[in-house]
Protein backbone atom coordinates (compact mmCIF):
# COMPACT_ATOMS: atom_id res chain seq x y z
CA UNK A 1 0.00 0.00 0.00
CA UNK A 2 1.77 3.11 -1.19
CA UNK A 3 0.31 6.24 0.32
CA UNK A 4 0.86 9.55 -1.45
CA UNK A 5 2.72 12.30 0.30
CA UNK A 6 -0.23 14.52 1.12
CA UNK A 7 -2.48 11.92 2.77
CA UNK A 8 0.54 10.47 4.55
CA UNK A 9 1.34 13.82 6.13
CA UNK A 10 -2.33 14.27 6.98
CA UNK A 11 -2.38 10.92 8.81
CA UNK A 12 0.86 11.76 10.58
CA UNK A 13 -0.55 15.11 11.68
CA UNK A 14 -3.72 13.54 13.06
CA UNK A 15 -1.73 10.91 15.00
CA UNK A 16 0.77 13.39 16.42
CA UNK A 17 -1.92 15.93 17.28
CA UNK A 18 -3.87 13.28 19.19
CA UNK A 19 -0.79 12.28 21.17
CA UNK A 20 0.14 15.91 21.71
CA UNK A 21 -3.23 16.91 23.13
CA UNK A 22 -3.82 13.74 25.13
CA UNK A 23 -0.32 13.13 26.52
CA UNK A 24 2.10 16.01 26.10
CA UNK A 25 -0.04 19.06 26.85
CA UNK A 26 -1.31 17.80 30.22
CA UNK A 27 2.10 16.55 31.35
CA UNK A 28 3.77 19.75 30.20
CA UNK A 29 1.11 21.77 31.97
CA UNK A 30 1.74 20.00 35.27
CA UNK A 31 5.46 20.59 34.99
CA UNK A 32 4.78 24.24 34.20
CA UNK A 33 2.42 24.64 37.16
CA UNK A 34 4.89 22.87 39.45
CA UNK A 35 7.83 25.05 38.56
CA UNK A 36 6.14 28.37 37.64
CA UNK A 37 6.89 29.67 41.15
CA UNK A 38 10.49 28.51 40.96
CA UNK A 39 12.32 25.47 42.24
CA UNK A 40 12.21 26.83 45.79
CA UNK A 41 8.44 26.68 46.05
CA UNK A 42 8.48 23.17 44.65
CA UNK A 43 11.16 22.17 47.13
CA UNK A 44 9.14 23.57 50.04
CA UNK A 45 6.12 21.48 49.04
CA UNK A 46 8.20 18.34 48.64
CA UNK A 47 9.97 18.68 52.00
CA UNK A 48 7.00 19.27 54.28
CA UNK A 49 6.83 16.73 57.12
CA UNK A 50 3.74 15.16 55.56
CA UNK A 51 5.49 14.86 52.22
CA UNK A 52 8.65 13.34 53.66
CA UNK A 53 6.65 10.89 55.74
CA UNK A 54 4.66 9.92 52.62
CA UNK A 55 7.84 9.27 50.70
CA UNK A 56 9.29 7.26 53.57
CA UNK A 57 6.12 5.15 53.82
CA UNK A 58 6.06 4.57 50.06
CA UNK A 59 9.70 3.50 50.06
CA UNK A 60 9.07 1.28 53.08
CA UNK A 61 6.29 -0.51 51.21
CA UNK A 62 8.54 -0.90 48.17
CA UNK A 63 11.34 -2.22 50.37
CA UNK A 64 9.05 -4.91 51.79
CA UNK A 65 7.23 -5.79 48.58
CA UNK A 66 10.20 -6.14 46.24
CA UNK A 67 12.15 -8.84 48.14
CA UNK A 68 8.96 -10.82 48.79
CA UNK A 69 7.98 -10.68 45.14
CA UNK A 70 11.49 -11.60 44.05
CA UNK A 71 11.70 -14.68 46.28
CA UNK A 72 8.19 -15.96 45.72
CA UNK A 73 8.11 -14.82 42.11
CA UNK A 74 11.13 -17.03 41.38
CA UNK A 75 9.46 -19.93 43.21
CA UNK A 76 6.31 -19.54 41.13
CA UNK A 77 8.23 -19.10 37.87
CA UNK A 78 10.30 -22.22 38.60
CA UNK A 79 7.16 -24.17 39.40
CA UNK A 80 5.49 -23.01 36.17
CA UNK A 81 8.49 -23.78 33.98
CA UNK A 82 9.92 -26.90 35.58
CA UNK A 83 6.95 -28.41 37.35
CA UNK A 84 4.83 -30.98 35.58
CA UNK A 85 1.79 -31.09 37.77
CA UNK A 86 -1.93 -31.09 37.45
CA UNK A 87 -3.36 -27.59 37.62
CA UNK A 88 -0.44 -25.85 35.96
CA UNK A 89 -2.83 -24.08 33.59
CA UNK A 90 -4.83 -22.95 36.60
CA UNK A 91 -1.69 -21.59 38.23
CA UNK A 92 -0.89 -19.66 35.04
CA UNK A 93 -4.34 -18.09 35.14
CA UNK A 94 -3.97 -17.11 38.82
CA UNK A 95 -0.69 -15.34 38.08
CA UNK A 96 -2.42 -13.22 35.42
CA UNK A 97 -5.43 -12.44 37.63
CA UNK A 98 -4.00 -9.26 39.19
CA UNK A 99 -3.72 -7.75 35.68
CA UNK A 100 -7.45 -8.23 35.23
CA UNK A 101 -8.73 -7.15 38.63
CA UNK A 102 -9.55 -3.49 39.27
CA UNK A 103 -7.34 -2.03 42.03
CA UNK A 104 -10.43 -0.97 43.96
CA UNK A 105 -11.65 -4.57 43.95
CA UNK A 106 -8.25 -5.62 45.26
CA UNK A 107 -8.69 -3.20 48.14
CA UNK A 108 -12.25 -4.35 48.84
CA UNK A 109 -11.24 -7.99 48.76
CA UNK A 110 -8.49 -7.35 51.31
CA UNK A 111 -10.92 -5.52 53.60
CA UNK A 112 -13.34 -8.45 53.35
CA UNK A 113 -10.56 -10.94 54.11
CA UNK A 114 -8.39 -9.17 56.68
CA UNK A 115 -10.77 -6.48 58.02
CA UNK A 116 -12.27 -6.59 61.49
CA UNK A 117 -15.40 -8.30 60.15
CA UNK A 118 -13.49 -10.35 57.60
CA UNK A 119 -12.46 -14.01 57.57
CA UNK A 120 -9.22 -13.25 59.37
CA UNK A 121 -10.79 -10.53 61.53
CA UNK A 122 -9.72 -12.48 64.62
CA UNK A 123 -6.20 -11.14 64.12
CA UNK A 124 -7.41 -7.73 65.27
CA UNK A 125 -8.38 -9.21 68.63
CA UNK A 126 -4.82 -10.36 69.24
CA UNK A 127 -3.60 -6.89 68.35
CA UNK A 128 -2.54 -7.46 64.74
CA UNK A 129 -4.07 -4.73 62.63
CA UNK A 130 -3.90 -5.36 58.91
CA UNK A 131 -6.41 -3.05 57.31
CA UNK A 132 -5.85 0.69 57.88
CA UNK A 133 -2.21 -0.03 58.65
CA UNK A 134 1.04 -0.99 56.95
CA UNK A 135 0.39 -4.74 56.43
CA UNK A 136 -2.79 -3.95 54.50
CA UNK A 137 -0.99 -1.57 52.17
CA UNK A 138 1.78 -4.12 51.69
CA UNK A 139 -0.74 -6.86 50.87
CA UNK A 140 -2.52 -4.56 48.41
CA UNK A 141 0.75 -3.71 46.68
CA UNK A 142 1.82 -7.37 46.65
CA UNK A 143 -1.45 -8.29 44.93
CA UNK A 144 -1.14 -5.76 42.12
CA UNK A 145 2.59 -6.36 41.52
CA UNK A 146 2.58 -10.16 41.83
CA UNK A 147 2.71 -10.98 38.10
CA UNK A 148 5.70 -8.84 37.14
CA UNK A 149 8.64 -10.88 38.43
CA UNK A 150 6.98 -14.17 37.48
CA UNK A 151 6.18 -13.03 33.95
CA UNK A 152 9.65 -11.61 33.32
CA UNK A 153 11.59 -14.53 34.79
CA UNK A 154 9.47 -17.32 33.30
CA UNK A 155 10.46 -16.88 29.62
CA UNK A 156 14.14 -16.60 30.57
CA UNK A 157 13.96 -19.85 32.52
CA UNK A 158 12.30 -21.46 29.53
CA UNK A 159 15.03 -20.27 27.24
CA UNK A 160 18.01 -21.37 29.33
CA UNK A 161 16.54 -24.82 29.93
CA UNK A 162 17.96 -27.05 32.64
CA UNK A 163 21.09 -28.40 30.95
CA UNK A 164 23.40 -25.90 32.63
CA UNK A 165 21.95 -26.92 35.99
CA UNK A 166 22.46 -30.59 35.18
CA UNK A 167 26.04 -29.81 34.20
CA UNK A 168 26.55 -28.05 37.53
CA UNK A 169 25.16 -31.09 39.34
CA UNK A 170 27.55 -33.44 37.55
CA UNK A 171 30.38 -31.11 38.60
CA UNK A 172 29.43 -31.53 42.24
CA UNK A 173 27.23 -28.49 42.93
CA UNK A 174 24.33 -29.06 45.31
CA UNK A 175 20.89 -27.47 44.90
CA UNK A 176 21.75 -24.21 46.61
CA UNK A 177 25.10 -23.85 44.85
CA UNK A 178 23.46 -24.50 41.50
CA UNK A 179 20.77 -21.92 42.20
CA UNK A 180 23.17 -19.19 43.32
CA UNK A 181 25.91 -19.83 40.78
CA UNK A 182 23.95 -20.89 37.70
CA UNK A 183 20.21 -20.21 37.81
CA UNK A 184 20.22 -16.78 39.44
CA UNK A 185 22.99 -15.27 37.28
CA UNK A 186 21.25 -16.62 34.17
CA UNK A 187 17.95 -14.91 34.95
CA UNK A 188 19.42 -11.72 36.38
CA UNK A 189 18.40 -9.33 33.61
CA UNK A 190 14.88 -10.66 33.36
CA UNK A 191 14.67 -10.46 37.13
CA UNK A 192 15.99 -6.89 37.11
CA UNK A 193 13.35 -5.93 34.56
CA UNK A 194 10.66 -7.52 36.69
CA UNK A 195 11.92 -5.68 39.76
CA UNK A 196 11.80 -2.32 37.96
CA UNK A 197 8.23 -3.00 36.87
CA UNK A 198 7.37 -4.01 40.44
CA UNK A 199 8.97 -0.89 41.92
CA UNK A 200 7.27 1.40 39.40
CA UNK A 201 3.88 -0.13 40.06
CA UNK A 202 4.40 -0.20 43.82
CA UNK A 203 5.33 3.49 43.87
CA UNK A 204 2.34 4.45 41.80
CA UNK A 205 -0.39 2.20 43.16
CA UNK A 206 -3.37 4.21 44.29
CA UNK A 207 -6.72 2.43 44.01
CA UNK A 208 -5.96 -0.64 46.10
CA UNK A 209 -3.97 1.27 48.72
CA UNK A 210 -6.61 4.00 49.03
CA UNK A 211 -9.19 1.42 50.11
CA UNK A 212 -7.05 -0.30 52.75
CA UNK A 213 -5.46 2.86 54.15
CA UNK A 214 -7.21 5.59 56.13
CA UNK A 215 -4.76 8.06 54.62
CA UNK A 216 -3.83 9.84 57.83
CA UNK A 217 -1.27 12.48 56.98
CA UNK A 218 2.18 11.70 58.35
CA UNK A 219 1.10 8.20 59.27
CA UNK A 220 -0.60 6.05 56.66
CA UNK A 221 -0.40 8.35 53.65
CA UNK A 222 1.62 7.18 50.66
CA UNK A 223 2.81 9.50 47.90
CA UNK A 224 -0.16 8.74 45.68
CA UNK A 225 -2.56 9.28 48.56
CA UNK A 226 -0.79 12.56 49.27
CA UNK A 227 -1.51 13.71 45.72
CA UNK A 228 -5.20 12.92 46.12
CA UNK A 229 -5.51 14.29 49.66
CA UNK A 230 -3.76 17.57 48.87
CA UNK A 231 -6.10 17.98 45.92
CA UNK A 232 -9.09 17.41 48.12
CA UNK A 233 -7.70 19.90 50.66
CA UNK A 234 -7.58 22.38 47.74
CA UNK A 235 -3.77 22.50 47.98
CA UNK A 236 -3.51 22.22 44.22
CA UNK A 237 0.10 23.35 44.03
CA UNK A 238 1.18 20.81 46.65
CA UNK A 239 -0.67 18.14 44.73
CA UNK A 240 1.13 19.05 41.50
CA UNK A 241 4.48 19.00 43.28
CA UNK A 242 3.89 15.51 44.69
CA UNK A 243 2.68 14.31 41.28
CA UNK A 244 5.85 15.66 39.71
CA UNK A 245 7.95 13.65 42.15
CA UNK A 246 6.03 10.53 41.14
CA UNK A 247 6.49 11.41 37.47
CA UNK A 248 10.22 11.64 38.11
CA UNK A 249 10.21 8.11 39.53
CA UNK A 250 8.22 6.89 36.53
CA UNK A 251 10.76 8.45 34.19
CA UNK A 252 13.66 6.74 35.98
CA UNK A 253 11.78 3.45 35.76
CA UNK A 254 11.26 3.93 32.00
CA UNK A 255 14.97 4.58 31.47
CA UNK A 256 15.98 1.56 33.56
CA UNK A 257 13.51 -0.62 31.66
CA UNK A 258 15.08 0.37 28.34
CA UNK A 259 18.56 -0.37 29.70
CA UNK A 260 17.61 -3.80 31.10
CA UNK A 261 15.65 -4.72 28.00
CA UNK A 262 18.72 -4.05 25.88
CA UNK A 263 20.90 -6.05 28.24
CA UNK A 264 18.61 -9.03 28.24
CA UNK A 265 18.22 -9.11 24.47
CA UNK A 266 21.97 -8.84 24.04
CA UNK A 267 22.95 -11.51 26.55
Amino acid sequence: MKVERAPRIALRTVALAYLFVLLLVPVGLILFRTFENGIGAFWDQVTTPASISAMALTLEIVAIVVPLNVVFGIFVALALVRGRFRGRGFMQAIVDLPFAVSPVIVGVSLVLLWGVNGWFGGLAEVGIRVIFSLPGMVLATLFVTLPFVVREVEPVLHEIGDEQEQAAATLGANGWQTFWRITLPSIRWGLAYGVVLTVARALGEFGAVSVVSNGVSGQSETLTLLVANRFEDLNLFGSYAAATVLMGFALVALVLMTVFERRSTRA
Partner: peptide, 23 residues
Protein backbone atom coordinates in the same frame (compact mmCIF):
# COMPACT_ATOMS: atom_id res chain seq x y z
CA UNK B 1 7.01 9.48 19.84
CA UNK B 2 7.31 5.70 20.02
CA UNK B 3 8.65 5.90 23.58
CA UNK B 4 5.92 8.40 24.50
CA UNK B 5 3.22 5.79 23.81
CA UNK B 6 4.18 3.94 27.00
CA UNK B 7 3.77 7.04 29.14
CA UNK B 8 0.23 6.15 30.34
CA UNK B 9 1.54 2.71 31.38
CA UNK B 10 4.42 4.24 33.31
CA UNK B 11 2.54 7.09 34.94
CA UNK B 12 0.77 6.36 38.23
CA UNK B 13 -2.98 6.61 37.68
CA UNK B 14 -3.44 9.35 40.26
CA UNK B 15 -0.79 11.38 38.45
CA UNK B 16 -2.69 10.84 35.21
CA UNK B 17 -5.76 12.15 36.97
CA UNK B 18 -4.12 15.30 38.28
CA UNK B 19 -2.38 15.83 34.94
CA UNK B 20 -5.69 15.73 33.09
CA UNK B 21 -7.21 17.97 35.71
CA UNK B 22 -4.68 20.60 34.69
CA UNK B 23 -5.99 20.37 31.15
Amino acid sequence: VNALIDLPFALPTIVASIVLLAL
